[in-house]
Nucleic acid binder design. Structure first.
Lengths: 222, 222
DNA sequence: GTTTTAATATGATTTAGATCATATTTTTGC
DNA sequence: GCAAAAATATGATCTAAATCATATTAAAAC
């Protein structure tokens, strides 16, 4: 991680939802940080010191289980907030880790400043609440999928979500991450990817995946 | 469901976090509703019309899958909010159902009034946000458990959570609900309950469960 | 208060998917 | 640029838990 030039005060969640009078304060308190691919932004279990606003790049948000098992809870992209789970009422420890999966730029502010921002900008609280509500819904949908859908369907769901995230039918992801995101193992993902390739729903070249038929993939989910 | 006498304007989430000047408005806009055990409070897929504040009783919040599979996402109790997931940015449809598991009294306000309340009471937004943050954390923890823990551990976790909810080592729940809450089937719960009984960690009489050793149960989770 | 319906008990069978094993290829750190 | 580490490929094996089947009991509805 290293410090970088400053943001445009327009793109991030904080600036977008703050009143104009507050932007100057934001300018004083934010820090622009740069993380290389695979760098850790924050780690599960460590104390929450601030909030991150994703400016550019992609980040995986994940939970560890034992030494070698993980679950990717979501992928974050431009405009998203990171570290906001620490705002809950319990101990202020991150309950997830965040790792850059591309070179990533974030805007960072200390927790105290962000909490002040919430007080000053009612709209910010409102938007953040909405953001939470959406995430919660998605988390609950995923829980249901984990319990009731088989791996192939969950993989289809994961591929479609990645496509949405990248705003393209083409994207890059390791099979390992795809497994952690679908809630299964590498081997099972490998086999199911083979099946999707055989069915001509996708094309794979190394880590690059191209969706050939969104429609047929979607059928696996229903 | 039937209407009931009014609430004390002190207990529910809305009243607790509204400024004193707003309580009169709340008094004008809330409705006190009574639901008998097993009655549906709202149904997944139907439009969100209002927000419910749980005043007394217990409610299960669940998602359906096909005709005969469900997942219980959480249990709500006194002081909790219901229907708040509808506040997200998407379509205003409930993404979960809520069903009373005991006779239950709730305070109800229409969505528009609640949204006005959020604007007027910054502290309400803040507290709601905190509530969301906590729920999100819990949902993510559950996701990880579903992926990485076996059924017996998830059952132990569910039993401990129910104990916390009831603030007692003794509580009542159907095996069916226990299965939906642990993300598994009735038969599997039945067998694992037998094992816990044999290990003398719990005692069961009909639907009544008593935890004998919280400590040993907890060991299954780590 | 009896019929219907839902919940429970419990064994037998099946299966999806985890785990193991091993070889090969790709990345990445020094 | 090379060694070490991580990711990938792929078959073989194992197992937890789902499904099926059937009997019994309890709860809810008419």
């Amino acid at each position: 991680m290293k410090k970088a030039g400053n943001c445009d005060l327009k793109t991030c969640f904080l600036c977008q939802h703050s009143i104009p009078e507050w932007i100057a304060a934001v300018s004083d308190h934010r820090q622009h940080l740069f993380f290389k691919k695979n760098e850790t932004i924050f780690q599960e279990g460590s104390p929450v010191k601030g909030i991150f606003f994703l400016y550019d790049g992609k980040v995986k948000v994940h939970k560890q289980w034992g030494p070698d098992k993980e679950l990717i809870v979501r992928f974050a992209q431009q405009g998203d907030i990171l570290g906001h789970r620490g705002l809950g009422s319990g101990e202020r420890l991150y309950t997830v880790s965040a790792t850059a999966v591309e070179d990533t730029t974030v805007c960072y502010t200390e927790l105290a400043f962000f909490e002040a921002s919430l007080k000053v900008n009612p709209n910010l609280s409102l938007k953040l609440m909405q953001f939470y509500a959406d995430e919660l819904q998605e988390a609950e949908r995923k829980m249901r999928n984990l319990v009731h859908m088989d791996v192939k369907s969950r993989l289809a769901d994961a591929l479609l979500e990645l496509s949405r995230l990248h705003k393209a039918l083409h994207f890059t992801i390791s099979r390992q991450d795809l497994a952690s995101f679908s809630g299964t193992t590498y081997e099972t993902i490998y086999r199911n990817l083979q099946e999707f390739i055989a069915e001509k729903l996708i094309t794979v070249e190394g880590r690059a995946i191209t969706i050939l038929s969104e429609k047929k993939l979607r059928k696996y989910i229903a």
